[in-house]
C-alpha cells in the first residue's frame, strides 16, 4: 500500500527515501517551486508551509512524517488571477523587494492569524490568562520573527498583515 498525504488538495505519495524533507518533496518531486529553500536549517522561515492549517518549517520536516496530513504551499494559497487577500495587501504595502522570503511570509502570516484567533499567547502578550489577544504591531512583529527578510521590508510586511488582521477580515482558508 502506498502512503499518501495531500498537497494543495491533491493526493501525493510519500517518498521511498525517508531522508527527503517536506521542502524537497514539494520543490523537487512535485515541482512546486514557490516554497523557498533559504538556510535549510530552520533559521530563516522561507520554507514555511501550512500543515492542517498550522505553520511549520518544511526544511526540518521529514516528508514521511506527514502521512494523511494536508499540506498547503503558496501555490495553494492564491494564483496570479485569484490572489489571496494577504497577497494583495503585500503588493499594496510593498511587503517585499526581491520576493524570495514572500511565500514563507504569507504562509506564516496565515498560520499566525489562526493562532491569534485561537488565543495562543506570544512572548509579548502581557496577560497570559486573557482569552482574546489584540493584534498589535508588537504582537505581529514578535509572531513573525521566525521569517527573515534580507531586503529589510519588515515594515511593509507588518503593514500588510496589520491591514488584513485589524480590518477583522477573516483570512480565508487556502484553496484546497
Amino acid at each position: 500500500m502506498t502512503m499518501t498525504m495531500t498537497v494543495n488538495g491533491s493526493p501525493v505519495s510519500l517518498p521511498h527515501d525517508a531522508r527527503v524533507s517536506l521542502l524537497d518533496l514539494v520543490r523537487e518531486h512535485l515541482h512546486l517551486p514557490g516554497t523557498k529553500k533559504g538556510c535549510n536549517q530552520g533559521a530563516c522561515g522561507a520554507c514555511t508551509v501550512l500543515v492542517d492549517g498550522e505553520r511549520i518549517l518544511s526544511c526540518l520536516a521529514l516528508a514521511v512524517q506527514f502521512e494523511g496530513r494536508s499540506v498547503t504551499t503558496i501555490e495553494g494559497v492564491g494564483t496570479p488571477g485569484a490572489l489571496h487577500p494577504l497577497q494583495a495587501a503585500f503588493i499594496e504595502h510593498d511587503g517585499f523587494q526581491c520576493g524570495y522570503c514572500t511565500p514563507g511570509q504569507i504562509c506564516s502570516a496565515i498560520g499566525m492569524a489562526q493562532e491569534i484567533r485561537r488565543g495562543v499567547p506570544s512572548h509579548v502578550t502581557a496577560d497570559l490568562a486573557a482569552p482574546d489577544i489584540a493584534p498589535t504591531r508588537d504582537e505581529l512583529r514578535e509572531r513573525m520573527s521566525g521569517n527573515l527578510c534580507r531586503c529589510g521590508t519588515h515594515n511593509g510586511i507588518i503593514d500588510a498583515i496589520a491591514e488584513i488582521v485589524s480590518a477583522d477580515v477573516l483570512l480565508p482558508e487556502p484553496a484546497q
Binding site: 518549517l57 526540518l60 520536516a61 506564516s108 499567547p121 506570544s122 497570559l128 521566525g146
Partner: peptide, 18 residues
C-alpha cells in the same frame, strides 16, 4: 505561567508548532 512564558520565549512559532 512560568512554563507558558518560557516556551513562547523560545525558537519561532513555526518551530514551536513542530
Amino acid at each position: 505561567p512560568v512554563l507558558s512564558r518560557a516556551i513562547v520565549a523560545g525558537a519561532s512559532a513555526q518551530i514551536r508548532n513542530m
